[in-house]
């Protein structure tokens, strides 16, 4: 069984994000890149599945600064193989990344694709398209379900839990190969001690493969990128308790919260 995990680097929103001079993209000078959080859950879910059902976990990323550390961490966490697809990748949208990943996966697995479950984060915060998994499923010609928070194998079928709102979930069945957009793993991603990552760095190598930019029809472009107006300190409501209550209810009504 192949558990394939796609990890994507996104800007860390802990850092102050600045808009570049062109007014249409982020200023990359101050960016700190981290793994998209749902992707971390996808990796954890894959490792949990491997622990339960056997098989191998392969973590794949696109080349990016400090991405090696991410791959070593994935290995220390329990992945069996780490693949870095090298190339000049900047400002790619999900459509493009899905093509790069699907090309690699098809080349690599060929006929073995039938025994493959691809897991990646349900969404990513850095992309206007925001979802890579359905595009990937499209290119691989496999079924797809997103917002998954539980996976198990049953007689060659994949049984998944999809989250709806307010705690309601649905159980779905799909056959392999498939692509899943993971919302959260059954358990929070496990801790990887630094010493383990460091020893993996010395003992395991990352597979680096080449790829080139896919041809994508010119799509839309961002016209303007900007920061939302900072709310700053609260707008203080004054008056009698009744007046304040009235104003609060109005605010809620404006936002459709009541």
């Amino acid at each position: 069984m192949n558990w394939v995990v796609i990890l994507k680097m996104v800007p860390d929103t802990v850092e102050e994000l600045m808009v570049a001079e062109d007014g249409r993209s982020l200023d990359t000078q101050w960016l700190r890149m981290i793994v998209s959080e749902p992707d971390e859950h996808a990796l954890e879910e894959a490792i949990l599945l491997k622990e339960r059902c056997g098989g191998t976990v392969t973590a794949i990323t696109l080349e990016a600064p400090e991405v090696d550390e991410i791959l070593y961490t994935a290995l220390a966490r329990g992945a069996d193989r780490a693949v870095k697809i090298s190339g000049e990748w900047t400002g790619l949208r999900s459509t493009a990344t899905a093509q790069i990943f699907s090309t690699y996966i098809k080349d690599w697995l060929g006929q073995n694709l039938s025994e493959t479950l691809v897991l990646t984060g349900s969404q990513a915060i850095d992309d206007l398209e925001g979802e890579m998994a359905p595009y990937l499923a499209h290119h691989l010609g496999t079924p797809y379900v997103g917002v998954v928070s539980g996976v198990r194998l049953e007689e060659g079928k994949v049984i998944i839990m999809k989250e709806f709102a307010g705690g309601l979930r649905g159980e779905f069945e799909l056959s392999l190969p498939a692509v899943l957009g993971i919302q959260s793993a059954e358990k929070p991603p496990r801790y990887v001690p630094v010493a383990k990552v460091r020893s993996i760095m010395k003992s395991v190598k990352i597979d680096t493969v080449e790829s080139s930019l896919p041809e994508i029809p010119a799509s839309l472009s961002v016209e303007k990128m900007y920061k939302p107006e900072i709310a700053g300190r609260a707008e203080m409501l004054a008056g009698t308790p009744e007046e304040i209550a009235k104003r609060i209810v109005e605010i809620l009504a404006e936002r459709g919260l009541i």
């Binding site: 929103t13 982020l26 839309l220 016209e223 900007y226 920061k227």
Partner: peptide, 18 residues
């Protein structure tokens, strides 16, 4: 003009569809 909220709400983008 479509305004999207990216990066966990820290950035907004305006986009026009061809």
């Amino acid at each position: 003009l479509f305004t999207s909220q990216l990066f966990g709400g820290k950035i907004l983008t305006d986009t026009r569809l061809p």
